[in-house]
Amino acid sequence: MQPEFYAEGPAVLIERQERSLIIADPHFGVEADLHRHGLHFQSGTDSRLARLLAVIEQADPDYLIVLGDLKHMIPYVTYQERTEMPEVLRRIRRETQFRLAPGNHDTGLEQYLEKGELLPMNGALIDGTGYFHGHTIPDPSLLGHLILCGHHHPVVNIYDAVGCALRGTPGYLLAEIDPSVWGPVPADPTRVLLVPAFYELAGGMDIRLIPGNKISPIAKAILTETGEVFLKDGTYVAPFTELRPDPLGEV
């Protein structure tokens, strides 16, 4: 298997028998919600979709797999989503096959999907790799494999000698997890790759704060000593345990 990182997504391509392009959490239609919270901006769907289509064109995958939160509003479908979602899906389908590992924001989206596009809530194993959103316990069939998940919106902060030099840039966390609390454990280790959000306005969660966090069962199961951190272009930053701490955390 060989991954390719597309920083402009962020997106990652996994190639085994087939080429699968993966993005997480694009949150199409978020502007309606921003509007309700006092932030008045035009729909970013066009530019977000254009960015996605550009990555698809570059990667030329057999599948696009979206790791959940394709749409934004919970628990219903907004006017913006109703009018935009069909077009977004149509344009994606024109380029490649499409799979969605449904996320907690994807309520009401089924009506726009075609048969076979929607993966099970607890994820699916495709071509030897597990894919799921990440807010639930993964399906037992995924254990013992590499699992890609979204939901966490991981970001990296990098500090230099004077202060923080790079704040909140999207990044990947690769780590083994301990799935023993969920049931029988397979012989092979289970690794997860937390994929950063495609949604560019995501506030994001500092990678250092994800392991052990209540945000998901996965986060709680991460074995930090196996963790490794990458930037969105695949640049290796450091082992998780050696992430340079906030320089002022030591006060």
Binding site: H37, G38, L39, H40, G44, G168, A202, G203
Partner: peptide, 21 residues
């Protein structure tokens, strides 16, 4: 300018990236 309400709620959003808009 009316782009952001005086009482807007900025939680869960990256203000820095929003300002890029």
């Amino acid at each position: 300018f009316g782009a952001i309400d005086a009482d807007a709620d900025y939680e869960k959003i990256s203000m820095n990236r929003l300002l890029d808009l």
